[in-house]
């Protein structure tokens, strides 16, 4: 039975991705003090950087909309923050996004994508394909980064937009950057 062609491999060994370190520097320069997150593998290196940072409060959430509300409270108290989440968590945030929209509060969301490039799990498709439209339907300004070299500058742009114009923004970090998971392939090995 003919399967799909194997994903072309890079000839050289892939270097460790450095974009999370660059994103960490951008967020520090932007003055981020509170980080709310529901973990995702794609954010793990950035999360480790914040875990090691005594100047930043890293808060693990039970669901992503908690972070939208927490960062609204942080803004009322004069602190900037960032919300780290996976695309599936965007759906959890919808009504809570009323808060930054109606109050003109900054919100910076860094969304690691599932259900797009190279996805193997069909259950990730509905929310992954709906992520950008869902955010935009609630007034969030969305930009995408689909190359590792573009992530930090895209985050820089979204952070400036959020904190200088008091609007909710999201950066969607594509699976081309993160690498598509394939548990089926792993299961065969």
């Amino acid at each position: 039975m003919a399967g799909l062609a194997a994903k072309p491999e890079n000839k050289a060994a892939a270097p460790l991705p450095s974009w999370p370190d660059e994103v960490y520097r951008v967020l520090k320069e932007a003055g981020v003090k509170q980080v709310g997150m529901v973990p995702d593998a794609g954010h793990s290196r950035l999360i480790r950087a914040f875990e090691a940072d005594p100047e930043t409060r890293l808060v693990t959430l039970t669901t992503e909309e908690e972070g939208v509300a927490m960062l609204a409270g942080a803004w009322l108290g004069g602190q900037r923050g960032v919300l780290l989440l996976q695309s599936s968590g965007v759906g959890n945030c919808i009504n809570m996004l009323s808060l930054p929209a109606i109050c003109h509060m900054p919100l910076l969301m860094l969304v690691t994508m599932r259900g797009d490039w190279g996805e193997f799990n069909p259950w990730q498709i509905p929310m992954g394909q709906g992520t950008q439209a869902a955010l935009e339907s609630m007034g969030v300004i969305v930009t995408r980064a689909d190359e590792p070299d573009l992530v930090a500058q895209t985050v820089w742009g979204a952070a400036n937009l959020a904190f200088n114009t008091w609007r909710p923004t999201a950066v969607l970090i594509g699976q081309r950057v993160l690498g598509a998971k394939n548990f089926k392939e792993l299961a065969r090995k």
Binding site: Q34, A69, Q79
Partner: peptide, 25 residues
């Protein structure tokens, strides 16, 4: 006062973010 007119479910987490940002208040 920050009285909410919507965003049901926000109140306690807004309190957390505010409390962390303003530890002396």
């Amino acid at each position: 006062n920050f009285p909410l007119w919507g965003a049901m479910g926000a109140a306690s987490m807004m309190g957390l973010g505010l409390a962390l940002a303003q530890p002396k208040r």
